[in-house]
Design a binder for these strands. Structure first.
Lengths: 212, 212
DNA sequence: TAGATTGTTAATCGATTAACAATC
DNA sequence: TAGATTGTTAATCGATTAACAATC
């Protein structure tokens, strides 16, 4: 039915479009052109049109894209029009921070359970969630239909947590620990390692940076 | 002297190499081949050799790469062999979490100042840092030679903080708020927005995901 | 209608991979 | 020497951009 393979680059731009469209929607902007979008997001307008065209004809020639309609369509493409439950292991600062992002996710994607291996944390409240022992992971992944796992434990424990998630039948993982994890090929894993990000920035610094 | 333009993709892989090499070093592994690296990091060995070859001849034919030597070389390429000071605005959970990553950065890159706009947070200790009022940003960026800024404030304040950083003479920014920021072209800005990351994962979920 | 902007094809550009001579 | 692995060129692959007919 849809034999065209969509590249990862395209998929990663869709949430960015969505984010800005939501902003426009809040400002009650009705319509946006690929030119507008491209200017704001620093992307080529042709690229934006092509990205969207992979999934259908969402615009009107001579007019542009209806903001509300395009939001709806992108949400469908990303499958955000159906519930998608997320579980998080590692109730440290980073874990707390991510739980607070639930409000940005709104939609149907939600962190529905938080786990930690430290007994001192069991029962702690994070927003409307209560920290559970990691031993409950497998059971709750099943029970709550958790399909995406977030890993925010220290690096040495990350692989272990990943293994638990995989055994529990998780479909995808988002890893924040600064290590490369091995998981079966059928599990999708994204790395959101901020150290990597920061170190690569260093490359672009002018040398001999002491000014003055 | 070096007229070859290095692509961003290459630069972003270097810290990943570095991370794994550090791991090997800790395990006292002496030598590694592009094949080993490729297998571990899920990259084509030819690509790894090519990436490294942009910067020099670091390997030995028939042998591979000396782990310690390659670490040293990559650190030089990324300019991690000289001090690089980082400032962070937003002492919330995420800010705290990132400060704890200082230990992973070790090297010469360090978060040397933390700022927040909330007077209740002034004076709060995070590891060995004390939260400063954002009004001190410009002064301390100069005084401490801060060259990279990290933004971990709520979305509505992010642009404002970015402006302050730019006025203070920052060279690069790492933004964690889920908004697109406008900064002058000469400032390098990377977005580390975890919502984008998570939403794009949704695309790869099987539809009709309720199992059972 | 005239002006604007899409969807899409073709052209360009760049990045990845294969292949292999050089050499440890 | 034989086997292994680099550095590098050439081939392939894929992604971005330009261009334009279609049409609102």
């Amino acid at each position: 039915m849809k034999p065209i393979k969509i590249s990862e680059a395209v998929v990663r731009r869709l949430p960015v479009y969505l984010q800005y469209l939501n902003e426009l929607s809040k400002r009650e902007v009705q319509t946006v052109s690929s030119q507008d979008l491209g200017h704001k997001l620093d992307l080529n307008p042709a690229q934006i049109r092509k990205d969207l065209a992979y999934f259908g004809e969402f615009g009107r020639k001579g007019v542009g894209y209806d903001v509300t309609y395009l939001i709806e369509k992108i949400r469908q493409i990303l499958k955000l029009d159906q519930p998608l439950n997320v579980g998080l292991v590692g109730a440290g600062n980073l874990g707390h921070a991510l739980c607070n992002y639930n409000k940005y996710l709104k939609d149907n994607m939600k962190i529905v359970a938080v786990f930690d291996a430290d007994p001192h944390k069991y029962g702690e409240r994070i927003n409307n969630l209560i920290v559970q022992p990691t031993s409950e992971l497998a059971r709750l992944v099943q029970e709550l239909n958790i399909r995406i796992g977030i890993i925010t434990v220290p690096a040495p424990e990350a692989q272990n947590v990943a293994n638990h998630f995989v055994e529990a039948g998780i479909e995808a993982l988002l890893n924040f620990a600064p290590v490369i994890l091995k998981v079966p090929d059928e599990i999708r894993i994204h790395h959101a390692d901020f150290t990597t990000e920061l170190l690569s920035l260093a490359y672009y610094m002018e040398t001999g940076g002491e000014h003055a």
